[in-house]
């Protein structure tokens, strides 16, 4: 990365009230406030959202792919953790 390049920010959009923010992509920006502007202009041009979060990419603590087996595989055979044994009532849209 060139030293004069703007830092990278991850962009999260809440598409409508009541839903949670979802990762949409990333933008470069000179600072936090401009990152919000850039996220708005890059990712919400077609009414994609009602709320925006941006966070410096280097502030995100990510899991290590080398540890995937320890991290995620133990959950694979725990079928009882999935709430699939009852019916979802009609009319519940976002579960």
């Amino acid at each position: 990365m060139k030293s004069d390049e703007w830092p990278l920010y991850e962009v999260f959009i809440r598409s409508k009230s009541g839903l949670s923010h979802r990762h949409a992509g990333s933008v470069h920006a000179p600072d936090d406030q401009m990152a919000l502007d850039h996220a708005r202009d890059t990712y919400t041009r077609r009414s994609e959202g009602v709320s925006l979060w941006v966070v410096r990419s280097d502030q995100i603590i990510a899991s290590d792919p080398a540890e995937n087996s320890a991290f995620f595989e133990p959950a694979e055979d725990k079928i009882y953790r999935h709430p699939t044994f009852y019916d979802i009532p009609d009319g519940v849209e976002n579960l």
Partner: peptide
């Protein structure tokens, strides 16, 4: 000068 500003300007 930057892609993000390019989009903003065009918008």
């Amino acid at each position: 000068p930057e892609l993000e500003e390019e989009l903003a300007n065009a918008n």
